[in-house]
């Protein structure tokens, strides 16, 4: 299962949800859904912009955990 570690990265970089959403160019609602891992997918374009703003790699935002490990 894919887990989104966006909140951890946002805390680390000291940027808020609203500001990040504005800079990425998506709605606060969608950014909130993404942060909470409630979306079906993420576009490369969105991921690229997030990485650019947070100065990180996609692997720092998205993480694969198998179901047993996740529990």
């Amino acid at each position: 299962m894919i887990y989104v570690n966006l909140d951890k990265m946002m805390r680390l970089k000291g940027i808020g949800l609203v500001k990040l959403a504005e800079r990425v160019g998506i709605t606060t609602a969608n950014m909130s859904l993404l942060k909470n891992g409630k979306v079906k997918g993420i576009r490369f374009e969105t991921l690229s912009k997030i990485c650019e703003i947070l100065q990180c790699q996609p692997g720092e935002i998205l993480e694969y955990r198998d179901n047993e490990h996740a529990k």
């Binding site: 949800l17 609203v18 998506i26 606060t28 609602a29 969608n30 950014m31 909130s32 859904l33 993404l34 942060k35 909470n36 409630k38 979306v39 079906k40 997918g41 993420i42 576009r43 969105t46």
Partner: peptide
């Protein structure tokens, strides 16, 4: 609203 406390919990969205 900004923190997403009132948003729907599940979404089929691709952002």
């Amino acid at each position: 609203l900004a923190e997403g406390k009132t948003y729907k919990e599940d979404s089929e969205a691709i952002v």
